[in-house]
């Protein structure tokens, strides 16, 4: 009898357990972190990639299909960043809720204005993205914009927790605006600082902080530089010097380290996304660390 009562209770309570938290599939750590900020306990976030993986090149692993199968909301960058793997997950997961066009499919890059839209689409230009540069997460103003739409989307998909999402979004906005003001004040000395980048991954950061990009190590986006090409850049940096060469945490350190050694400038691995460094534990830490890393070399 006791067992029967327990069974009845479990059956009755099953929907509560089953729908305790909204399953969110985040393609990149920054969106996972944002969903956690906005959803708190109301969401269960699975982050498909880490800061040490190249989001252009991810294997469509069985584990990702299994997670996509149960997702109620997929939050991805879009702008073709995940074109090599996300379509496979969407097609193989058999999940109608997160197909493009459904409320459960959210593309962050659609919420902001993209930079570097190529005028000509030709693979001879390397790994370019037709919609523009997809690495939008390096500008906190973009995070703020995405947060507004994502907050609303969470409430739309999970109306039972709409109040939670509203409160958390308002709270996040307050903290984020305060943090942005702080970062902008701290980063004042960075305005106009010339930098070299390994991959065209930082236009939004440069735009935000007023950094001046004077060299890119990759001859074409996604094409690893040869020693000859790096030597040319060293020569070029003699006339237009850079203060630092930066790369994302996931990138091969060798090109920027080689350049750093030969051009006599520091090489810095930027966290690039949440989890990319010890300090970048969340979105706030990501920008705390990014600004701090750059300030260290600006002096």
């Amino acid at each position: 009898m006791k067992a029967f009562r327990l069974f009845v209770f479990l059956v009755a309570a099953w929907p509560i357990f089953a729908h305790a938290a909204l399953n969110v599939f985040a393609c990149e750590p920054e969106w996972g972190a944002l969903a956690t900020e906005l959803g708190g306990d109301a969401v269960k976030v699975y982050t498909a990639t880490t800061a040490f993986q190249d989001p252009h090149h991810i294997e469509a692993r069985p584990s990702l299909i299994a997670q996509m199968r149960r997702a109620e909301l997929a939050v991805c960058t879009g702008a073709e960043l995940e074109i090599g793997w996300l379509p496979v997950l969407l097609r193989q997961a058999g999940n109608a809720a997160i197909q493009p066009g459904q409320p459960g499919y959210f593309e962050a890059a659609r919420q902001v204005a993209l930079l570097e839209k190529p005028a000509v689409l030709d693979r001879a230009q390397g790994d370019i993205h037709a919609a523009g540069n997809p690495h939008i997460q390096t500008d906190p103003r973009n995070i703020a914009r995405v947060a507004q739409v994502l907050g609303a989307r969470l409430a739309e998909i999970d109306p039972a927790h709409a109040a939670v999402y509203k409160t958390r979004l308002a709270d996040f906005n307050t903290r984020w605006n305060a943090a942005m003001a702080r970062w902008q004040a701290q980063a004042a000395p960075l305005k106009g600082m010339p930098i070299a980048v390994q991959h065209e991954g930082f236009p939004y950061l440069e735009n935000w902080l007023g950094l001046k990009q004077v060299a890119v190590l990759e001859p074409k986006p996604g094409v690893a530089p040869s020693i000859g090409h790096l030597a040319e850049i060293v020569a070029q940096l003699k006339t237009t010097p850079a203060k630092v060469v930066i790369r994302a945490a996931y990138q091969d350190p060798r090109p920027s380290e080689w350049l750093a050694e030969h051009a006599g400038i520091p090489a810095v691995a930027m966290p690039f996304t949440v989890g990319g460094s010890d300090r970048a534990k969340d979105l706030f830490g990501l920008f705390d660390d990014s600004v701090a890393q750059l300030l260290k070399v600006a002096r």
Binding site: A131, R145, V149
Partner: peptide, 16 residues
Amino acid sequence: NAAQPPAPAQDTANSA
């Protein structure tokens, strides 16, 4: 407010 004012959101969505 913005040194370089961002273009309106939904830009890509509208142009595609």
